[in-house]
Design a protein around this nucleic acid. Structure first.
Lengths: 143, 143
DNA sequence: TTGCAATTGCAAATCATTTGCAATTGCGAT
DNA sequence: ATCGCAATTGCAAATGATTTGCAATTGCAA
């Protein structure tokens, strides 16, 4: 509870009530090295003895995403939705096809391209989604 | 049947048996301006009086994707899988958030970036997925 | 034409996610 | 502090997309 103080603040600031599971979920998200699924979150909570119903976990992750405290991530070949703490940086993911590790990438190579495409197509571009797939150094060794 | 001759060929060439629904599905895919879902395909077939069971449609689209005659497409905010005829070009999609139109883009701005990223991360990069979101000219007018 | 593996249809199962509803809880106003 | 009420939760059941088991059918090589 004490270490979740800033998360309570963030939660309240966007008009949500602060509950034990909400601030815990946000704290867990923040500490995760990579995006996690609702079910993984459910087990993380259980381990911390702050367990919440799976529906609640879904509802919480959804509302956090809606309020831009979290982001939804969809990886090809995985039909689940993953959730990531929103660090307010435009972010892409490098996904290892061997061990399924997901590495966030902060740099984005597409800023100029978006402008070009907007001019070409007359679309109002609001964003893009880029994921890069491959094999990480460790997985390359084992094959 | 006659116009599907090339599709029969393509199907057999990859070790699959040619069936009425398979070549019809491949022909429909080829004629579609944009990726479609299994269910949409199911209705397309019904209209052509070549109806196949929905399971068969799923199985067929999957096997076509596996043999690289089709590609799977996942668009953010749509939990379904869409399927696109594989024109053997590296392709991205421009998605209109207003009318959900999906426009394929053949040019790719990422070739150099992939090489750079490979060097930086020591990943073996096998590909990427890029979709761009925005509002098309028509939808811009109405808002 | 025959034989058999590949394909299909059907119904039931599965998996992730959502929803209705009654019980509980956070928190602003008293 | 506590009251009141809307927001949140738990639970069980519904949903929607997709998959699967199995028996019947079909394509195609021999």
């Amino acid at each position: 509870m004490t270490e979740n103080m800033d998360f309570c603040e963030a939660i309240k600031r966007c008009g949500l009530k602060n509950t034990k599971s909400r601030s815990a979920i946000l704290a867990i998200l923040e500490q995760c090295a990579q995006p996690i699924s609702a079910e993984q979150m459910f087990f993380e909570l259980k381990e911390k003895n702050i367990s919440a119903n799976l529906s609640t976990v879904y509802r919480t992750l959804d509302v956090l995403a809606e309020k831009n405290l979290a982001t939804k991530v969809n990886i090809a070949g995985d039909n689940r939705t993953l959730y990531d703490f929103n660090r307010m940086v435009h972010r892409h993911y490098l996904v290892c096809l061997g061990c399924n590790k997901i590495i966030p990438i902060d740099s984005c190579p597409l800023e100029n391209y978006e402008k070009l495409l907007a001019k070409e197509t007359n679309f109002l571009i609001s964003g893009h989604k880029l994921d890069i797939y491959g094999y990480c150094p460790e997985c390359r060794k084992h094959s």
